[in-house]
C-alpha cells in the first residue's frame, strides 16, 4: 500500500493541496503586475499598504497567542485559520509596500525591522484579549469593518490592492461569521457569559471611533484607497443586528483619545504594542544576518 513508506512521499514534488491548512507560502505576488499605476503616489500607496497590512499582522499576532489556549479543540482550529488568513493578507500587503515605495524590500523587512512608531495599525488590533469574549468581540468589530473596506477596495485603481481585496473578502466574511455566531452564543448563553460579553464590548468600544477617521494618506489616494468614514453606516447596521441577536446593547462609552494628536495610523500606540513587537521581532533581530 502507498503509505508503507511515508518517507517516499517526502520526495514528491510540491503538492500544496496536501498541506492540511494554509497553502501558498511562497512569493505572494508572483505573476501579478506590480507596477505602481501612473498618477498614484508611490509613497502614499506604500503607507496605505502598511496601514492595512499592519492591521492584519498585528491582529494575527494576537490570535497566534491563543494557540493551545482555546476553549475547545474545534475553536483551536478555527482561530488558527483566521490567524493564517490575516497573516496571508499581511504578507501580500507588506510585499506590496516594498514595491510601491521603490525600495524593493521584502515583507520581512517591514514586519521585523521597523520600530513601534513606524507601525500603522489601528490600536484595537494590538489590544490584548483577556478572555474569549474579548477575542470574539475584537474579531467581530475588526472583521466587520475590514470586510466593508475590502468590498469597496475591490474597485481600487491599484490592481494589486483590488486583487488582494478580492481574495480577502471571502476570508473576512468567514471570520465575521465565526465571531458573530460566538457573540450571539455568549450574549444569549448564561449569566456569566452575558456579563463577560458586555464587559468585552465595553473594553473594545472606546477604540471603535478610530476605525472610521480618515488619514491624510487615505484622502490623497482618491480612487485607490477607501475612505473609512464611508463604511460607518454599514458597520453600525451589522453590529446592531448581531448585538440585538445576542441580547446586548451598543455600549455608551467615550472614545479613547490619541496622543499628541496621533493614534494608531500615525504610529501612536498603546503601551501593549511594545511588548507585542518585542515578541514578534526577537528572533529575527537576534540573527540579523540570517536567512530562514
Amino acid at each position: 500500500m502507498a503509505f508503507d513508506n511515508a518517507y517516499e512521499a517526502l520526495a514528491d514534488a510540491h503538492d500544496d493541496a496536501r498541506w492540511a491548512f494554509g497553502t501558498g507560502f511562497d512569493n505572494p505576488l508572483s505573476g501579478v503586475d506590480t507596477t505602481v499605476p501612473s498618477g498614484v503616489d508611490g509613497e502614499d500607496l506604500a503607507q496605505y499598504c502598511l496601514m492595512l497590512g499592519d492591521d492584519a499582522l498585528v491582529l494575527s499576532h494576537r490570535l497566534q497567542q491563543w494557540c493551545t489556549r482555546a476553549p475547545e479543540l474545534e475553536d483551536e482550529v478555527a482561530i488558527a485559520n483566521i490567524g493564517l488568513d490575516l497573516l496571508g493578507q499581511a504578507r501580500l500587503l507588506l510585499a506590496r509596500t516594498g514595491r510601491a515605495d521603490g525600495s524593493g524590500r521584502g515583507e520581512d523587512h517591514y514586519a521585523y525591522f521597523r520600530g513601534e512608531h513606524e507601525f500603522r495599525n489601528v490600536r484595537l488590533a494590538e489590544r490584548e484579549h483577556a478572555d474569549f469574549a474579548q477575542l470574539v468581540a475584537t474579531v467581530l468589530v475588526l472583521t466587520t469593518w475590514r470586510l466593508a473596506v475590502f468590498q469597496r477596495l475591490q474597485a481600487s485603481a491599484d490592481p494589486v490592492l483590488a486583487a488582494i481585496a478580492q481574495k480577502g473578502v471571502n476570508e473576512l466574511t468567514y471570520h465575521r461569521d465565526y465571531a458573530a455566531q460566538w457573540v450571539v452564543r455568549l450574549g444569549d448563553g448564561t449569566e456569566t457569559s452575558h456579563a463577560r460579553t458586555v464587559a468585552a464590548f465595553d473594553e473594545v468600544w472606546p477604540l471603535v471611533a478610530e476605525l472610521f477617521e480618515p488619514h491624510d494618506v487615505e484622502r490623497r489616494l482618491d480612487g485607490v484607497a477607501v475612505d473609512p468614514a464611508e463604511v460607518r453606516a454599514e458597520f453600525d447596521d451589522v453590529l446592531a443586528q448581531v448585538l440585538s441577536a445576542a441580547t446586548l446593547e451598543t455600549p455608551v462609552v467615550p472614545a479613547k483619545a490619541g496622543v499628541a494628536g496621533g493614534k494608531g495610523r500615525n504610529g501612536r500606540h498603546t503601551e501593549q504594542m511594545g511588548y507585542l513587537l518585542a515578541e514578534l521581532q526577537s528572533v529575527a533581530r537576534a540573527y540579523p544576518e540570517a536567512t530562514w
Binding site: 492540511a20 494554509g22 479543540l73 482550529v77 515583507e107 514578534l280 540573527y287 530562514w292
Partner: peptide, 25 residues
C-alpha cells in the same frame, strides 16, 4: 509561532501546529 523569524516560517508553523489540533480531533 509568535516569534518565528520570517513571515513565511510563521505561516508554515502556524499551519503545522493547527494540523496537530486536527490530528487530535
Amino acid at each position: 509561532i509568535t516569534r518565528a523569524p520570517s513571515l513565511r516560517r510563521k505561516a508554515i508553523l502556524l499551519a503545522k501546529v493547527q494540523d496537530e489540533a486536527g490530528h487530535g480531533l
